[in-house]
Design a protein around this nucleic acid. Structure first.
Lengths: 132, 132
DNA sequence: CTTGGTTGTGACAATCATTATCAATAAGCT
DNA sequence: AGCTTATTGATAATGATTGTCACAACCAAG
């Protein structure tokens, strides 16, 4: 049976309150900072449950941490500056559809996809061009 | 000054010879298996240099490892089985065009992109469903 | 209310990828 | 060949994540 504990609620609320992505570690720190004596392992478990039940999405940050977000606002991808790290969120409905179509064509199921565009943002482009 | 060592060459060649993405750990294992006594740290360093100089691309796999690929001329994308590692090459002209368009819309230049779809191939899907 | 069974928790150990350290080695110049 | 210094590689350190397990919290029934 699935039980409702204040810890799980705390994680869900903290995730809902967060705009965008947050790492498990940061979430744990944030909860601690606001007084919850919740354990780190519990945060990981709660996040795992949330993603398993589809209430949260999980992906890997460029820094190699797993980052999570409440799965309400629809899912998007990222445009990342190779130089300064600036990240712009981009919608990718076409790519979304495409990914599922190709996966299906090859008999794949449970398709997840990694769609990220790396480049140089306007500012860094200027800065680097000046260097040459 | 930049020196040329056989280790660096070995890493570059191993990466070129690899079709698709490979993790640093796997690359190290592969090199060891084919007789190179190259050190793990050196593989990481070489991969870091290659990505810094634009000869390789790096992204995070869903399993949390950093995976690399040679950033060569002809490029295609991959459909990768999370379970058995089967890799299918896929063409992605639409995505290609899309990536450049969004990058441009946000002022980004020198856009590279990472588009890969992870899932379960037909066989593994069946195997895992039988488990439940 | 109490008992019993079960699930969730949390401190800590274990694991895994990656990075830092540092003495020994070898590349490239003269 | 000899010198200078970047590079290597064994290993330790780090940091995120997962596993373990005794204990506490929860629910239902008596």
């Amino acid at each position: 049976m699935k039980r409702n504990t204040w810890q799980r609620e705390a994680v869900r609320e903290a995730l809902d309150a967060t705009d965008g992505f947050i790492s498990a570690q940061s979430l744990h720190s944030a909860l601690h900072a606001s007084g919850s004596p919740i354990g780190l392992a519990t945060v990981y478990r709660a996040l795992g449950d949330l993603t398993a039940s589809g209430d949260a999405d999980c992906l890997q940050s460029p820094e190699g941490e797993a980052i999570y977000r409440a799965c309400s606002t629809g899912h998007h991808h990222h445009l990342i500056c190779r130089n300064c790290g600036l990240t712009v969120e981009i919608a990718a409905d076409e790519v979304e559809a495409w990914a599922h179509r190709v996966a299906g064509e090859h008999g794949f199921t449970r398709a997840a996809h990694v769609v990220d565009v790396f480049g140089l943002c306007a500012e860094c482009s200027r800065a680097l061009d000046a260097d040459r």
